[in-house]
C-alpha cells in the first residue's frame, strides 16, 4: 500500500478572483522506502506541488485527491498534516527573530508528541539530542540559541532544515530545492542527512533542478513535471538524459 497517493490533482494559486491554474491533473504514488525525484522546467509547478501537499495558504485544490498514510490531506490544516507525518524542507526557510531555534524545535516536538498521544521528551535529553544532530549536519550548536534561521547563511538554513528532518522523523519528506544555492560540501552534508533519515518505512520526494543532487541521493524514480502534469517517469537514467538534452524534447 502506498504512503502517498496523489490522484488527478488540480490546484490554483492566488486570490479568489484571480486564480491561476498550476497543477492540472498530477498523479504520483510513493511507497514506503522509495525516493522520488521531481524535475522540470521553471514554472512547471514543482514548488506548487510541495506547497499544496503541505497546505500553504494561498493555494486551492480544485480537483483530485492527496492521501497520506490512508488520510485525506485536503481538509487538514498545515499543522495537522505535519502531525500526521508530512515534512516540507523549505526552498526559502523563514527567519524568525526572537524565537530561539531550541525553543522552536521543542515546541514542534512537543506538538507532534501531544498530537500522537506520546510522551513529550525530557528537556535535558532533548537538548542533548538536538546538539548532536546539529553537529552531525555541521551546524554550530551556538546556532540553537539564536533566533530561528536569523542571520543564517543560505547553506546554514538548508542544513537547519535537514536537522529538523532528522529530529522530527516524518513519514514523508518533501525537499523543495534543498540543493539550490549550496556549495558542493554543503550539498554532501545535506545528502548525507537525507540518506541517514531514509529507511524502509518512510518516503522522500526530492524536488530539484539539477541532476547533481541525485549523484548523492539515489532516486528510485525520476519524474518530469511540465505544465502541471507528470509527463515522463523513469529511473535515475532519466535524470542523466535530462541533464544532457534539457526538457525541450519532452515538452
Amino acid at each position: 500500500m502506498s504512503l502517498l497517493e496523489v490522484t488527478n490533482l488540480h490546484a490554483t494559486v492566488g486570490a479568489q478572483d484571480q486564480q491561476k491554474a498550476i497543477l492540472k491533473g498530477l498523479n504520483i504514488s510513493v511507497n514506503p522506502g522509495e525516493v522520488h525525484a521531481i524535475m522540470g522546467p521553471n514554472g512547471s509547478g514543482k514548488s506548487t506541488l510541495a506547497n499544496v501537499l503541505s497546505g500553504r495558504p494561498g493555494y486551492t485544490v480544485t480537483d483530485g485527491s492527496m492521501i497520506l498514510a490512508n488520510t485525506n490531506l485536503a481538509d487538514m490544516e498545515p499543522h495537522e498534516r505535519a502531525q500526521l507525518g508530512l515534512f516540507l524542507a523549505f526552498q526559502y526557510p523563514v527567519e524568525i527573530p526572537g524565537v530561539s531555534n531550541m525553543e522552536f524545535l521543542k515546541a514542534s516536538v512537543d506538538s507532534l508528541a501531544r498530537a500522537r498521544g506520546e510522551e513529550q521528551p525530557n528537556t535535558a535529553a532533548f537538548i542533548k539530542k538536538v546538539r548532536i544532530l546539529a553537529a552531525s549536519v555541521d551546524l554550530d550548536p551556538q546556532f540553537l540559541k539564536r533566533g530561528v534561521n536569523e542571520g543564517f547563511s543560505g547553506g546554514e538554513k538548508k542544513r537547519n532544515e535537514i536537522m529538523q528532518l532528522l529530529l522530527l522523523e516524518p513519514k514523508l519528506a518533501i525537499l523543495d530545492e534543498t540543493d539550490s544555492g549550496l556549495d558542493i560540501d554543503a550539498l554532501q552534508v545535506v545528502a548525507e542527512g537525507v540518506n541517514r533519515y531514509k529507511n524502509s518505512n518512510n518516503g522522500v520526494v526530492l524536488i530539484t533542478h539539477y541532476q547533481r543532487l541525485l549523484d548523492y541521493i539515489i532516486p528510485d524514480f525520476v519524474h518530469v513535471l511540465a505544465d502541471g502534469k507528470i509527463i515522463q517517469s523513469g529511473d535515475k537514467s532519466l535524470a542523466l538524459e535530462l541533464e544532457d538534452k534539457g526538457y525541450a524534447w519532452l515538452t
Partner: peptide
C-alpha cells in the same frame, strides 16, 4: 506562521511563540 505550522505547531501556539 506557516513555517511553524509546517512543523506541527498549532496556529494558537504559533501565534503565542511569535
Amino acid at each position: 506562521l506557516f513555517y511553524l505550522s509546517s512543523r506541527g505547531i498549532s496556529p494558537e501556539a504559533a501565534q503565542a511563540l511569535l
